[in-house]
Amino acid sequence: MSDLAIDIRNVAKRYAEHVAVRDLSLQVPRGAVYGLLGPNGAGKTTTIRMILNIIVPDSGTIELFGQPHLTNGATDRIGYLPEERGLYKKMQVRRVLRFLAELKGVPGKLAEARIEEWLERFQLRTPEKDWGLAKIDELSRGMQQKVQFIGTLLHDPDLVILDEPFSGLDPINAQALKDTVVDLKARGKTVIFSTHLMDNAERLCDAVCIIARGDKVLDGPVTAVKAAHGGRVIALAVGGESRPAIAHILADRTLVSRVDDQNRFYEINLAPGADPQRLLQRVVETGAAIQRFELVQPSLHQIFLERVGASGVEEGMSGQG
């Protein structure tokens, strides 16, 4: 039994106008919460669709739990919540859910029992009202999102793939989704989610992979990624009146490659080869009132900007994800 949930090797997908994924390899360990990060158009959705065998890669191999993903029924172990969500509008909630469960191979009786469990858990069935009998288009947007989650998880998948799960969610459902992810992890399931929101990834993920323009930029456990990028970021706070005095130092490209003004402090990326001590010395020389000077662990957001740059964000626009 492989200890990898997903093993992608040298996968590529080209379209007539552009390359969606260029020679991508990545490994997702079993039981991990894994973030697939990248700007819009980086190739996240294409990668996910290839894992699910919705799109056939031009080259490369994909294995799920140690088996080729084309193996019969292999994708039935995946629960998928796509970025573009929707359900049959005129269909009754219970029937939609039962249909989705049966497609994944859950026998009707078992599906029915689980549907009741989930409806109750997500408060779609209360003593006053049973929304399970309503048609999808009679539900509020938030309730439809809940039904969609249930549909994703009803067959108790070993691997859950969530594509931009937080986009368009109201805060309550976002919290419910986060709780669900934590719960899935606790039950030994593997969760992959793609996002361009680094804060979510930072809070939830054990490991991440950053892709941009169809290429992998970096991957690995979050702690390792941060450690690898540590020591090059400095949090600097000075008294408000001293700010103008140090402006010319921050503009010095031999010392500082990028500054992110966080209002209460500057988040400074050191230029390649620059010495933090030299920076401190220069600031002290100006006589500025230093309140904080600290070598910090960069946020994923910082790492992302540093490695991908603003250009990577700009160019992502094909809509193929």
Binding site: I54, T75, E84, R85, L87, L103, K104
Partner: peptide, 17 residues
């Protein structure tokens, strides 16, 4: 068209070819 415009198609084709 309904499956396409309601976007349910993507969930369905992730389970069935």
């Amino acid at each position: 068209m309904e499956e396409k415009t309601t976007r349910v198609a993507e969930v369905v084709v992730s389970s069935v070819d």
